[in-house]
Design a protein around this nucleic acid. Structure first.
Lengths: 161, 161
DNA sequence: GAAGAATTACTCGGATACTGCGTGTCCGAGTGTAACGGG
DNA sequence: CCCGTTACACTCGGACACGCAGTATCCGAGTAATTCTTC
């Protein structure tokens, strides 16, 4: 059970866009070249960010993608959910109700939620809460503190000297 | 990104074994029939629990599986890691270092950990901590409180009236 | 009747296919740009 | 010189293949119980 590559690609691409001084759109090819990713597949990921109103797409010549809102208005959870979908980490198939054919199990036994599901859900809630608390702007600030030259490199990689 | 079916199967099977009054081993076929799961595939899952010292396997006639230790000594995290493996939720391919060919990026820029990875890791730590805190015995207690007849049903499903 | 050995039946364990999703690629629709011609 | 028109080049967007991990299955090695034979 692991996140898809798209999550990592999405976050880094959003950060790259944030380093730029202006709001000019950047084409997929440029964004992909910055980290040696597949342009076609990156495009698919970016489209999911557009549907989540995190990115904005500009068609036509000199088009591309740009941030739809500032990074302090985007949480890590937003990105993960946009790329991975909103499915829960733990999938409960309610197997506790299976295999009871002809057992005369009263309906009331399943009125309350599955204890396993509850326990897993609690952990997932903690995960989501931590992700929701951290905005991309904070991540950006940490990255800048760790390597002050990252902004310059991003601008160069995107052709904005 | 979701857990495999094996996690749900494993937890419910462990609970079923815990409802039994004695420590007699139970065959895979019986355990699988309790929740309409594939016996062959369940066997694979149970083997992973054996390697994690959660279950104990008894070969030969009248053999099967039984708990290797009481459920209060098994955390939810133990089960998840045993079935899913210890890989991190967020996979960081260090793409921040890619695409910098001929860019003369100093090594020091990558000395500190990736900010994205740190943020994701923090959320994952919260998830793991919550899972590690909850023992299977607690989950069992909740299940019993929700549906007091669950123990009886489990014993019947496993052929132990 | 008791002990021991051969047989049998049942179990786990790993090696072997199948399926669905993540991954990767391609081409068409649409749009902004730029060139071009006319007034 | 300015404006409208036309053609073009570039972009996103979705439809189309590929590969791998999760899923499912089967068969063989090994062991405990059972049965039969012998003392």
């Amino acid at each position: 059970m692991q996140t898809s590559k798209g999550v990592e690609w999405a976050v880094h691409t959003l950060l790259n866009l944030a380093w730029l001084p202006d709001d000019e759109p950047v084409a997929t090819a440029q964004l992909a070249a910055a980290h040696d990713m597949s342009p076609s597949y990156l495009n698919k990921v970016l489209q999911q960010l557009v549907r989540a109103d995190i990115l904005q797409s500009l068609p036509g010549a000199r088009g591309g993608f740009r941030l739809a809102r500032p990074l302090d208005a985007v949480s890590m959870l937003d990105v993960v959910l946009a790329v991975e979908g909103d499915k829960p980490l733990f999938r409960c198939a309610e197997i506790r109700q299976c295999g009871t054919v002809g057992e005369r199990v009263p309906e009331s036994s399943f009125a309350l939620p599955c204890a396993v599901r509850s326990a897993m859900g609690e952990a997932e809630a903690a995960w989501r809460k931590t992700l929701a608390t951290q905005s991309l702007a904070e991540v950006q600030a940490v990255a800048l503190a760790n390597a002050p030259s990252v902004a310059q490199h991003a601008r160069r990689a995107l052709g904005r000297t």
